[in-house]
């Protein structure tokens, strides 16, 4: 699934008026809500409903810190986004939910923009995106700790809680 626009902000991904919810469930139907009021929008097609990888223009996820953005993308059925740049807070929020934010070089990104609807594979173990039809294999970078957490099912909060003693020590000296 390709959304070529650059600078897609989190207000587009899920408009603020839907943020009064106190749960994280059921946000998929609100994903890109105001774009989807156009019945012919790509996101309303059957193809979009089965798509798992979103290919988006440069600087995806800019704007607000709302974690509702990756929640909505995941609830809709997406598992990863590929772009040439992804905004910091969205990037961090995505990883914390097991939604892969993949930053890839321009050539591979262009190939993806030119081949919407193609089946590709993302290998998190090898940190590589495999493009079919001789599109080639492209590496991507991911924080090694996030990769470890995703592959091993390690919870970041558990890890932080394990640091309790060091935190207490820090507090004694500094706070």
């Amino acid at each position: 699934m390709v959304l070529e626009a650059e600078n897609i902000d989190t207000d587009q991904i899920i408009p603020a008026r839907f943020l009064t919810t106190t749960s994280r469930e059921g946000l998929g139907e609100l994903l890109f809500h105001d774009w989807r009021t156009d019945k012919d929008h790509m996101l309303n097609t059957d193809a979009a409903k089965t798509a798992q990888i979103l290919v988006a223009g440069h600087n995806f996820g800019c704007g607000s810190s709302r974690e509702h953005a990756p929640w909505a993308l995941m609830d809709y059925g997406f598992r990863a986004v590929i772009s040439t740049q992804i905004a910091d807070i969205f990037h961090a929020n995505a990883l914390k939910n097991g939604f892969l934010p993949i930053i890839i070089e321009a050539a591979a990104h262009q190939w993806l923009l030119d081949h919407p609807g193609t089946e590709i594979s993302i290998d998190l173990e090898a940190c590589a995106v495999h493009l079919p039809k001789n599109g080639g294999t492209y590496p991507f970078k991911i924080d090694p700790f996030s990769r470890h957490c995703l592959l091993q099912g390690q919870d970041e909060l558990d890890y932080l809680l394990e640091q309790g003693e060091a935190v207490t020590q820090y507090e004694k000296q500094n706070v």
Binding site: S64, I89, A92, N93, K96, N97, E156, L157
Partner: peptide, 9 residues
């Protein structure tokens, strides 16, 4: 700014 998961952290 941080997301909700980090608010929890």
């Amino acid at each position: 700014g941080i997301g909700t998961t980090q608010v929890g952290h």
